[in-house]
């Protein structure tokens, strides 16, 4: 067995320095344009347009059209970036507690689609497979939760206070 002392330090140094620099550059070249596009999308209020289109589809989960906006914000911009919209929707009372719960379930599996997909594209993953895979699973799980008996006893129509213990 070759000892640590005998490892090929020069080859390691070249691969470590070159490889890490190359990968950061690839990621930067993808993530910076994406962030500019996302900011432009926010500026142009593109979500308003798309959330209207998405709204009818949410009937599948028994969700109201108002839930489309926070759902789309989390899907496109991510949980932290879309948090403003999500928290605002929850607090405003426009979106019911049940709908917010389902938005959370969906977003747990499928969020920040643009940024995450771009980063994995940078290391060589197939973007179509990871987008379709995540979306498909989020739809299935959200559908199952929306049809579960859970809401029969918990549909209070209000946002519960944070207990720190979950539900």
């Amino acid at each position: 067995m070759r000892g640590v002392i005998n490892l090929d330090w020069s080859a390691f140094a070249v691969e470590a320095a070159g490889g890490s620099a190359k990968n950061v550059l690839i990621m930067a070249s993808i993530i910076i344009p994406i962030m500019i596009l996302l900011e432009l999308a926010r500026e142009k209020r593109i979500l308003d347009h798309f959330s209207k289109k998405l709204a009818p589809a949410l009937k599948v989960f028994g969700m109201s059209p108002e839930a489309a906006f926070p759902l789309l914000a989390g899907m496109v911009f991510g949980i932290s970036y879309g948090a403003g919209v999500i928290i605002d929707s929850a607090k405003s009372g426009r979106v019911s507690w049940r709908d917010m719960f389902l938005v959370n379930v969906f977003l747990a599996i499928c969020h920040a689609m643009i940024e995450d997909t771009a980063l994995f594209l940078a290391v060589g993953a197939d973007p179509l497979v990871i987008v379709v895979g995540r979306l498909g699973l989020a739809v299935v799980i959200t559908y199952l939760v929306s049809r579960s008996k859970y809401f029969d006893r918990n549909n209070t129509g209000t946002i519960p206070k944070t207990t720190g213990k979950g539900l």
Binding site: A28, I31, I32, P33, I34, M35, I36, L38, E39, L40
Partner: peptide, 9 residues
Amino acid sequence: AIKRGLQKG
């Protein structure tokens, strides 16, 4: 917006 995107990126 482009500037914000650049900074964010």
